[in-house]
Computed example of a mutant assay.
Amino acid sequence: MQTIKRMIEHQIWADKRMMAGLRANGGKPADAVKLMRHLATAEQVWVTRLNGQSSAHLQLWQDDADLDSLEELLASNEASYRAYADGLTEEKLDEMVSYANQSGVMFSTSVRDILSQVVLHGQYHRGQINRALKEAGGTPQALDYILYARMQ
């Protein structure tokens, strides 16, 4: 239980640091900002599903990302994930959540696996964003979990 909750806290921390890196590089490159929007929207999709709501209205890939709207979305995600984690129990981790994916196909997945997906998906894309930042002359952000853990 504590591991999942700490992984969520790491996700929040890493998203903020990634946004700081994108801001420091003037919101460039555009593909890195697009990936950050995808990451933030995917986090929103999953917490929406965890809360028993449809995510059909959310679009995972769009080109219209800007840093201000991304920071608003990430702040909303942060509040949603913290509220969700506050009510989480060991028993709830193994509860099944039924949902439709963005194509309308129905699935049923445990809360534990959904939360693991969220944090691992974010880590994957933050790595891609860091690479794009570096290639654009920006400074990649140090986002490893161990760095977060050392700060606690």
Score class of each variant (00 low, 15 high):
M1L: 10
I4K: 00
H10A: 02
H10P: 08
Q11H: 15
Q11W: 14
I12N: 01
W13Y: 09
A14C: 06
D15Y: 03
K16G: 12
M18R: 02
M19I: 13
M19D: 03
A20S: 13
L22K: 06
L22Y: 02
R23D: 14
N25G: 06
G26V: 07
K28R: 15
D31I: 14
V33I: 09
L35T: 04
M36P: 03
M36H: 05
H38R: 06
L39A: 10
A40H: 05
T41M: 11
Q44H: 15
Q44N: 14
W46T: 05
R49P: 07
N51C: 01
Q53H: 10
S55C: 07
A56D: 01
Q59D: 14
W61I: 09
A65K: 07
A65M: 04
D66C: 11
L67S: 03
D68H: 12
L70E: 06
L70F: 01
E71T: 10
E71H: 03
L73R: 11
N77Q: 04
E78P: 08
E78M: 10
A79V: 07
R82H: 10
Y84P: 03
E91R: 10
E91T: 11
K92Y: 02
L93N: 08
M96Q: 14
M96L: 14
V97L: 06
Q102C: 09
Q102K: 12
G104C: 05
V105L: 12
S108V: 04
T109V: 11
S110K: 13
S110L: 00
V111D: 03
I114V: 11
L115F: 01
S116G: 14
Q117P: 02
Q117M: 10
V118C: 00
L120W: 13
G122L: 06
Q123C: 15
Q123P: 09
H125N: 01
G127I: 07
G127Q: 01
N130I: 02
R131I: 14
R131L: 15
R131T: 15
A132F: 14
A132Q: 14
L133T: 01
L133A: 08
K134T: 12
A136L: 02
G138P: 05
T139I: 11
T139P: 08
T139D: 13
P140T: 05
P140Q: 06
L143F: 03
D144H: 04
I146M: 11
L147Y: 13
A149D: 13
R150C: 08
M151W: 11
